[in-house]
Design a protein around this nucleic acid. Structure first.
Lengths: 245, 245
DNA sequence: TCCTTACTGCGTATTAGGTACGCTAAATAG
DNA sequence: CTATTTAGCGTACCTAATACGCAGTAAGGA
């Protein structure tokens, strides 16, 4: 068994630990802990996730968790892999562009169920099983483009980067919005007050054009912005495939 | 004076508070606090920034800070605006594409000086003076494209989203790398062990092609990936400008 | 069968950090 | 000179992470 060559937390995420033989039967499993922590984060936000609160949900003591998890950070890593769940299988025969759009929407949908995901730092390459499944799904869509493997990875990395940016911005902003909607509704008038045309000429022009005046639903605006940027990126990918693929 | 219509923290960031008349002269200014906090975060990471540590650096007591700052979160918001500093002025007469590339590199360079930036949640629209200056700089580059104002904002938002993704991923990953370089160097072999070709066919193909085998400098790889994705996005913008602008 | 051993759950205690509260002293307005 | 406003700060409280070690449990071997 050469599991010991794998990093410890990766082995944990893939549930590769050999089952111990002696000692009392665990009344608690890693899955229980991760599930409880996710439920708590979903219900009350990541800040509510303390070892004590998680243990309470499980009817166990705080310190019992540490038999299954190295530290709280460790738990967070497992939570974020688990929260991604599995990607929905790609519809048969989709072209790469439809596929990547489907993929990106899928990521956002999955994460919308667990908004706290945006606050968990990514600690390494996508090594958990669910993360890897998403990665695989996106790579698979590019199969028929004829791009070299390395270029496929580049395209997917760029897409992941864009989507990560969206996740971070959208969900941080949503938290800010929930806490203080005024700051958003008054953004236009704040800018009018504060954006001196001599210092911020381009912003001032945009403000004058009224771009920040119509409020619109926060989510819808965001979704539209995301799609707009995504389509720009995919246009670039299309040009690249024409050139190289 | 209608400052009171501005959100309190925005007024603070723009230093619009009316100077008080009575009471002892402050021995401490908001700038001092923000500067000290940034220096501390630069030197020891965001986790080292506690109110106590910041106060210690200033030779003051912990609670003295609360006369100038509403809460620690408040301080973080100010820190992240201040950390951005001002964008370098755009070279004269650059075309939009060169300009946006220059801009994106500038953001990354600015943030590389303050890596903890990636961990501070964005709590609202870009309302601080430095944030706004960057926003203005990017918008200004698109001046001659003939795009309507709203489309310019869309293009810049997409770029910001991509860059935010890069910031988050690159700096989180760098932290993970510093802590545990093995996880990265062995990523290829980890995948080989763990990525069952029947479950992860596309990943397996990529692994077989050896894409994850050559290690390369962590920073250089990252920079290259970022530029690759950025150019794809800008290709998309170019197509959009041809179509609409 | 019984003892050894590996393991689980958990109580205790330590450390660290955020911040409410209220006191004291300073500066200025009247 | 007195009232008012404000700065600094000591104290205290609360929450949280987690090191440490004990006690009880289930398998394996004698």
């Amino acid at each position: 068994m050469d599991n010991d060559e794998l990093p410890a937390d990766v082995a944990l995420m893939w549930r590769l630990r050999e089952t111990p033989r002696r000692g009392p039967k665990p009344s608690l499993t890693l899955d229980d802990i991760v599930t409880a922590a996710i439920a708590l984060a979903d219900a009350e936000g990541l800040a509510a996730v303390s070892m004590a609160r998680v243990a309470e949900r499980l009817g166990n003591s705080t310190m019992a968790l540490y038999r299954h998890v190295k530290s709280k950070d460790d738990l967070l890593v497992m939570m974020s892999d688990a929260a991604l769940e599995r990607p929905e299988p790609m519809p048969d025969g989709v072209d790469w562009r439809t596929g990547l759009t489907f993929w990106a929407d899928g990521v956002l949908t999955a994460i919308r169920r667990h908004p706290w995901y945006a606050q968990v730092p990514i600690s390494g390459p996508p090594a958990g099983p669910n993360n890897l499944a998403w990665f695989d799904s996106a790579l698979g869509v590019l199969q028929d483009t004829g791009l070299p493997e390395e270029a496929k990875v580049g395209v997917v990395m760029g897409l992941i980067t864009y989507v990560q940016g969206e996740i971070r911005m959208a969900f941080d902003l949503a938290a800010g919005y929930a806490e203080n909607p005024d700051a958003f509704q008054r953004f236009g008038s704040t800018l009018r007050r504060v954006a001196d045309p001599r210092v911020y000429p381009a912003v001032a022009r945009t403000v004058e054009a009224g771009v920040f005046d119509e409020v619109g639903s926060f989510e819808e605006d965001n979704e539209a912005d995301f799609d707009f940027g995504l389509q720009l990126y995919l246009d670039g990918v299309a040009a690249f495939i024409d050139r190289v693929g």
